[in-house]
């Protein structure tokens, strides 16, 4: 739980600072550091939490529904589909980056220290 929260906070912060690349970087690092079974899935869940929280911030002004309806209309998709795509996009990026990070971590850890 703590790892999930910490990763989500990192992802939200980096997204705020760097844009969408932030989630990739955070996931890559988290994948490298988290040495536990199913870590990439946890990172993906963190991405959903992180971007979900940012969407919640967007909705504070009360205009989120109107905006979602407009964008969904422009893209010709239902509003829920647009939200799902948004969260799924972040989650997929995070999962895949975490898997790559996990692999990098394994290799780094398995490399014998040089003499």
């Amino acid at each position: 739980m703590l790892a999930l929260l910490a990763t989500a906070i990192a992802m939200a912060s980096l997204t705020w600072l760097l844009g969408w690349w932030g989630i990739v970087i955070a996931a890559l690092v988290a994948g490298t550091l988290l040495r536990r079974r199913g870590a990439p899935w946890l990172v993906a869940l963190s991405a959903i939490v992180a971007w979900g929280a940012l969407l919640a911030v967007d909705s504070f002004g009360g205009r989120f529904a109107a905006l979602a309806t407009s964008i969904a209309g422009v893209m010709r998709v239902p509003v829920p589909a647009l939200l799902i795509v948004t969260l799924l996009f972040g989650a997929l990026l995070a999962w895949s980056a975490a898997v790559v990070g996990d692999e990098i971590g394994r290799r780094v850890r398995s490399t014998p220290p040089s003499a």
Binding site: G19, W20, V57, F64, V85
Partner: peptide
Amino acid sequence: LEPAHGVWALARAA
């Protein structure tokens, strides 16, 4: 789609 500065952020700019 990114929610901090992407299209969703327009809700904050309203």
